[in-house]
Structure formats: C-alpha cells, structure tokens
Simulated scan of single mutants.
Amino acid sequence: MVADKAIENRVVSIAREWIGTPYVHQASRKGAGTDCLGLIRGVWRELYGREPLAVPNYTRDWGERQAIELLETTARQVLDDVKSISQVLPGRVLLFRMREGSAAKHLGLVAEDGPGPTFIHAYSGRAVHESALSQPWRRRLVGQFAFPERPL
C-alpha cells in the first residue's frame, strides 16, 4: 500500500531539515553526519521511532559488484514498492545504480515533482543537499519506494 499525501509531505519536510549535514560514511545523525542510507534511516526514525532493521557494515564503493541487490531487497522489505519509476512524487525514496553492472547503492528522496523535479541526498564530498533530478540521474534510477502508512 502506497503512503498517503500527509506522510509524503512530512518526509520532504524532515529531509529538508537534514540539508547541510556533512557526508559521513555509515552515519545517520542530523547536523553531525550522514550518508545516503543514513538520511533515509533518519527520516524513518523521525516518522516512526526506532528503525525496522539493524544495518550491517557496507562499503562506499558505487562500483561494487554483488551477487544480490542487498539495498533493493531490503527496501522492498520495509518500504512500499512503487512499480513505476517514470513518475516521481514528493516523499518517495529513489534507488540509483551509479555504474552499469554494479549493485544499486545510492538513495535519495524526491522533494519536488513537475517540470523541475528535485531530490534530497548525500554523497561523498558533499553535505546533504537538494539536486535537480536531471536526465543523468534519471538514467541511473532503478527503483522507487514509498514510506508505509504504518511501519513494520
């Protein structure tokens, strides 16, 4: 079941509070440090309290080849899968494959839709920021998910 508009608006509002948080691999603390997964985890905590799963150690290598799509599989377990990636809506979680043949390992949150869509994300060398969901980013998009109305 896909999240309602109130949850999606809240997700965007929470994510924007993280803008400016420095990039820190495997961290998830607003204002102190986060990576792309940490941003999603932080939004989840603010919406629902505790996180649904323990997060294992992971590498920051976007070119890493894995036998399974761990991030995608986990997203399908805890978030609502949105079958279409052609239309993005505010509050949705986006999953990106940064290199052909590698595991999907980057996440962001849609902030604005319409003719100039944007998303909020963190990646190495940058603080959390809002970027245009430009064609180069859209080409890397492999999944879209919604926060559930009720957590696991």
Rank of each mutant, 00 (worst) to 15 (best):
V78T: 08
S84F: 00
V55L: 11
P117R: 10
Q77L: 07
I7L: 06
S124E: 13
A75Y: 08
I85M: 01
P115M: 05
Y23T: 10
S13Q: 14
Q135C: 01
M98Y: 05
I120V: 12
H25S: 05
D61F: 10
R29K: 15
G91S: 09
R76T: 00
N9P: 01
G63S: 15
D35N: 11
G91L: 03
A132D: 09
P52T: 08
S134I: 03
I120R: 05
P22H: 07
R29P: 01
S86M: 00
L89E: 12
R50C: 10
W62G: 05
A27H: 13
R92H: 12
R45T: 12
R138F: 04
L39Q: 06
V93H: 06
P90Y: 02
L107Q: 11
A127Y: 05
G42C: 08
R41N: 02
Q144H: 00
T73W: 01
L94T: 09
V43C: 04
P22M: 10
P56I: 11
Q135W: 08
Q77R: 14
L94M: 14
Y23H: 15
R126A: 15
T34I: 09
R92V: 01
R45K: 14
A146N: 09
P148E: 11
T74D: 06
N57S: 15
E112C: 03
Q77P: 00
N9A: 06
G20H: 09
P90A: 05
R126L: 14
E64K: 14
L47A: 04
P151W: 06
I68C: 10
Q144R: 14
G101C: 09
A54N: 12
A54T: 13
I14Q: 04
E17I: 01
G20C: 11
Y48P: 04
I19T: 14
E72K: 13
Q144I: 10
A122G: 11
A3M: 03
